[in-house]
Simulated assay, not measured.
Amino acid sequence: MKKILYILILSLPIVGISQENKEIKEQKQKLKASNNLTYDANKELVDDNFIDAEANYRKAIATSNDNAAAKFNLGNAYYKENSFGEAFVRYKQAGETAQTKEERHSAYHNLGNVFMKNKEYDKAIEAYKEALRNDPSDEETRYNLALAKEMKKKDDQQKQNDKNNDDKNKDKDNQDQQQDQQQNKNDQDQDDNQNKNDQQNQDNKENDQNSDKNKEQKGDEGKDQEDKNPKPGDQPKDQQDPKQQPPRPNQLSPQQIKNILEAMSNEEKKVQEKINGKKVKGKPAKNAKDW
């Protein structure tokens, strides 16, 4: 049992190596076929035959996923057609499968160009930095990196200005809205005050009308009471108190009659005295002595 187990252990690496060699061989064959398709696609692209070139690049990529050149060239083809979304996908694939620094540098350099076209300056800066890590001597990549930083600075400033303008407009809108709300409130308050004044005037008018009605009603009640309780002068003659009867016009009161009689009596006395006085002067009387 130990011998069989030992043989099995020895035979396993042999089988594994054989299988690995077979897979490597197949991969190399696929890569060679993919390169041939890429070569044909390059020729068609030079002849401005984009449709056939695109088809052969796709076949090349499908034949061997390790063919970074097919992905990179297809990305260039899309870039020239302004299909930046498709170009981004192919450049990214080329950078991930590149076998050399030169291939990685080219993939990320062109990836940075795609980001610049889309005005995604932050991503462009990172792509150019990755390209320089693989080839620090490329001055074109360095120039593009500096340009991306400058464009980002201007873009940030423009965004800040736009934000400030938006904030100003927002503040103005809020201010206008507040003013409108205040004006509406003032108008509403004015309407409420006017309604209150109108209601007050109406109430006052109704109160005045009620007061007049009350006065009329009291007047009628007083008149009715007077009718029920007639004044002494309004009583029938047979019901009046003679003592309380006022004198008739051109008729003297008892007091006046008394005063007149007294005045006549006094006047009569004065006349009598005058007559008597004259008699004494004519014949003075002799006084008899009172012994």
Rank of each mutant, 00 (worst) to 15 (best):
L8C: 03
L8R: 02
S11M: 09
S11C: 10
S11P: 01
L12G: 07
L12K: 07
P13Q: 08
P13H: 03
S18P: 08
Q19T: 12
Q19P: 11
N21D: 10
N21L: 15
I24M: 07
K28W: 00
K32V: 00
L37H: 10
T38F: 04
T38K: 11
T38A: 06
Y39W: 09
Y39T: 00
N42C: 01
V46E: 14
V46W: 06
D52T: 01
N56L: 01
N56F: 01
I61N: 08
A68T: 08
K71L: 03
F72S: 06
L74Y: 00
G75Y: 05
A77H: 00
Y78F: 08
Y79E: 11
Y79Q: 05
E81Q: 07
E81Y: 01
G85A: 01
E86D: 10
E86V: 00
A87D: 08
V89C: 05
R90A: 07
Y91C: 07
Y91L: 08
G95H: 09
E96W: 02
E103P: 14
E103I: 07
L111V: 06
K119S: 06
D122E: 05
A124N: 04
A131H: 03
L132S: 03
R133K: 15
R133G: 13
D135A: 03
P136H: 12
E140F: 09
E140L: 13
Y143P: 03
N144A: 04
A148Q: 06
M151K: 15
M151C: 05
M151P: 09
K153M: 12
K153S: 13
K159L: 03
N161C: 01
N161M: 07
K163Q: 13
N164W: 02
K168F: 10
D171V: 14
N174Y: 10
Q178P: 00
D180Q: 14
D180Y: 14
K185F: 13
N186T: 04
D187S: 12
D189F: 02
D191N: 12
N197E: 10
D198C: 02
Q202C: 04
N204W: 02
K205H: 12
N207E: 14
K213T: 09
N214E: 14
Q217L: 10
D224R: 02
Q225E: 14
D227N: 09
N229H: 07
P230Y: 00
D234L: 00
Q235K: 01
P242H: 00
K243A: 06
K243P: 02
R248S: 12
N250S: 11
N250G: 12
L252P: 15
I257E: 12
K258E: 07
I260R: 14
M264G: 11
N266Y: 13
E267P: 06
E267C: 07
E267Q: 14
Q272I: 10
K274R: 12
K279I: 08
K283W: 14
N287S: 13
A288T: 15
W291R: 08
